[in-house]
Amino acid sequence: MCKSYDEMKCKVTACCDPIRVLVTGAAGQIAYSLLYSIAKGDVFGKDQPIILLLLDISPMLPVLDGVVMELQDCALPLLKEVVPTDKEEVAFKDLDAAILVGSMPRKEGMERKDLLKANVSIFKSQGAALDKYAKKTVKVLVVGNPANTNCLIAAKSAPSIPKENFSCLTRLDHNRAASQVAMRVGVPTDNVKNVIIWGNHSSTQYPDVHHAKVTVSGTEMDVFDAVKDDEWLKGDFISTVQQRGGAVIKARKLSSAMSAAKAICDHMRDIWFGTPEGHFVSMGVYSNGKPYSVPDDLIYSFPVVIKDKAWKIVTGLQINDFSREKMDATATELVEERDTAVSFLGA
């Protein structure tokens, strides 16, 4: 005898307690592309109920109400509750996952140090809120730019939460790099694995394919062998990935939203469920000064593997002089950002 729809729906959604997931900047365009995927189970699992906490600044609350109405109108069985708010004590309470999308964008005429100062204020406050209200096991993904340094400030402002619980988004750059290789070779993107984004989510990032593989006609080979154009891989390929965000803005008159949301989903899903055997992905994570001679006390993008919700930097990769120079250049930028931002922490 067939079960009723209500019985099947109950079986799907009653297997476990809801998790509490925060998205900040929730009235913005990235969140608008992101929230549906989270709420329908693309990130945390098809049988995982969700309570969504949506945080934005007070003037955006009317817009946020419209987002809530749309989520309700999607009639998603996994979405148990949506809480729109402008209050940190509400938004950060008992969180299992926090996706910090909102940040101060750079405005015309604003110097970089002014941008850093404004964002230090935001992420110092949100880090303190995580420390005070969230679960100590919370997984925190920082998206708002400058993402690496904002992530570091949030982590420093939440001393009771392990720094390993914090990461920043470089998966969008990782996806861009894989896509560029796939298009060049003429294969699907999932035929490309183990590209690396080193360093900062900025124009100094280093998209590295020296350790990447591509499958062509059933045969896995090194990317350099498949592409057969070293000049492109060491030139236009790198600059295209580095400048892709600007190219999207120039064409669309708006920043990347759909692709950023997809990358956020990829990043958080890998944290929750792990990376496939033999694959690594790029994430901005805390450096202790050991792997690849990257300076201590930075959030720096490395290749990582993930298991049981814990990341581990892939070690032992051979770094040639070409790569070393580019890895050091992006580290230098991050050290300067960190030192400037930390100088504002006590302000």
Rank of each mutant, 00 (worst) to 15 (best):
D6Q: 10
E7C: 03
C10G: 02
T13C: 06
A14G: 04
A14R: 06
D17P: 00
R20G: 04
R20H: 10
I30R: 00
A31E: 01
Y32S: 15
S37E: 15
I38F: 02
I38H: 01
I38N: 03
A39N: 14
K40F: 03
G41P: 04
D42S: 11
D42H: 08
V43E: 10
F44H: 11
K46Q: 12
K46H: 12
K46M: 06
P49K: 01
I50Y: 07
I51E: 14
L53E: 01
P59N: 15
P59E: 15
L61V: 13
D65M: 01
E70D: 15
Q72T: 09
L76T: 06
K87W: 00
E88S: 06
A91I: 07
A91K: 04
F92K: 02
K93S: 12
D94Y: 12
D96H: 05
A98D: 14
V101A: 09
M104K: 09
R106P: 07
M110G: 05
R112M: 13
V120G: 07
S121L: 11
K124Y: 13
S125I: 03
D131G: 01
I153R: 02
A154L: 02
E164N: 07
C168E: 03
T170R: 00
R171N: 12
L172P: 00
L172S: 08
H174K: 07
A182G: 08
M183E: 14
R184H: 12
V185R: 09
G186Y: 09
P188Q: 12
N191Y: 04
V192W: 08
G199T: 02
H201F: 15
S202T: 11
S203H: 10
S203V: 13
P207D: 06
V209D: 03
H210R: 15
G218Q: 09
G218K: 06
T219I: 15
F224V: 15
F224Q: 13
F224Y: 13
D225R: 11
D230P: 01
L233R: 05
K234F: 08
G235R: 09
G235M: 09
F237D: 08
F237S: 08
V241G: 05
V241M: 00
Q242T: 07
Q243H: 10
R244I: 00
A247Y: 11
A247P: 00
K250T: 14
K250H: 07
A263T: 06
I264F: 08
C265P: 13
C265M: 11
D266G: 02
G274Y: 07
G274I: 10
P276F: 12
F280K: 01
F280Q: 01
S282G: 05
M283T: 03
M283C: 11
N288Q: 09
K290M: 06
Y292A: 07
S293D: 14
V294H: 08
L298H: 09
I299N: 02
F302H: 09
P303N: 01
D308Y: 05
D308V: 03
K309A: 03
A310N: 13
G316W: 05
G316H: 03
G316T: 08
L317N: 08
N320D: 15
N320P: 08
F322Q: 07
F322W: 14
R324I: 09
E325P: 04
K326H: 13
K326T: 07
L334R: 10
E337Y: 12
A341Q: 10
A341C: 11
V342Y: 10
G346V: 10
